[in-house]
Design a protein around this nucleic acid. Sequence first.
DNA 1: TTCAGATAGTTTTGCCGCATAACTATTATG
DNA 2: CATAATAGTTATGCGGCAAAACTATCTGAA
Lengths: 152, 152
Amino acid sequence: MGTTGAITDASLRAFVGYDMKRAFNALQADLSRTLTPFGLRMMTFSALSLVVENPGLRPSQLATVLTIERANLVVIVDELEQRGLLTRTPSTTDRRAHALHVTDQGQSLFAKANRAVAEHDARMIAGVAQHLQPQLKDALRQIENSAKQDVV
Amino acid sequence: MGTTGAITDASLRAFVGYDMKRAFNALQADLSRTLTPFGLRMMTFSALSLVVENPGLRPSQLATVLTIERANLVVIVDELEQRGLLTRTPSTTDRRAHALHVTDQGQSLFAKANRAVAEHDARMIAGVAQHLQPQLKDALRQIENSAKQDVV
DNA sequence: TTCAGATAGTTTTGCCGCATAACTATTATG
DNA sequence: CATAATAGTTATGCGGCAAAACTATCTGAA
């Protein structure tokens, strides 16, 4: 067995950051399994969702919302475009820019994937008391804001 | 500017997983800045903390607690050992195994880093109502468990 | 009006986190 | 005692992500 008895991470458990890392890692691993049948990853699913919700979105805007660099978005859009899930058409008003639109095929795949993700998310949060669920989301958004403002 | 008006991610915001990803990413970025002055990353800080708390821990046990593969722990321990923060000594009872111990220098560095991380963590959670903070941690641990059990 | 600076998209490169496979040395077990 | 299991290690590769450098285009101020 071990050294003497049980191993403890009590010191780290004092940090909400540690709890978040563990929860998110476990959730992410499980979500990946949910998305694999659709040929999607977290990032490609999120990108698809945002283009569905914001037709005509430009790549740079999408990168901003996803908080990743434009450079990294290129391969994501490449992948989705090559699979015929979205289109990249030149902008009519700005010849530098492109407009992103989801194809019918992309819409269809997204609808199915979104249902699966919704079910997955429900499973994840099921163990949290109903009345605490909105407060949990509020707390997470508050932490996101605290972390961003802390940059200063 | 944009396409028409504001870009929305309301569809993704319905998922607690999305809120968690964003919160964790922001927190992690900020925590990295906190740890940089100590020459530590999240992973090396966590490893150091666990060895401080569990002297004589074996690498395989450490990997299990950190939920990473033994193979990846090697480089982490290598790094900490080369910096003189911990020692890797042969186990007396099992000639395959090693025992990890933090050096005085490691203890000293960890004490300082731990204080900085504690302050960082306090800033992160400061925006969450005091009475909700323990419930937030409970919820995160519950989600971690839900995600792990969902593998089945 | 023109030209310097900003912006959009892209390519390249590299680091970090993490998984898998394969290997050696040692221990445990049927 | 032979086989299986375990501890540590090395090598390899993928995904997420950042930084730098480049071209094409747009914008704003002298």
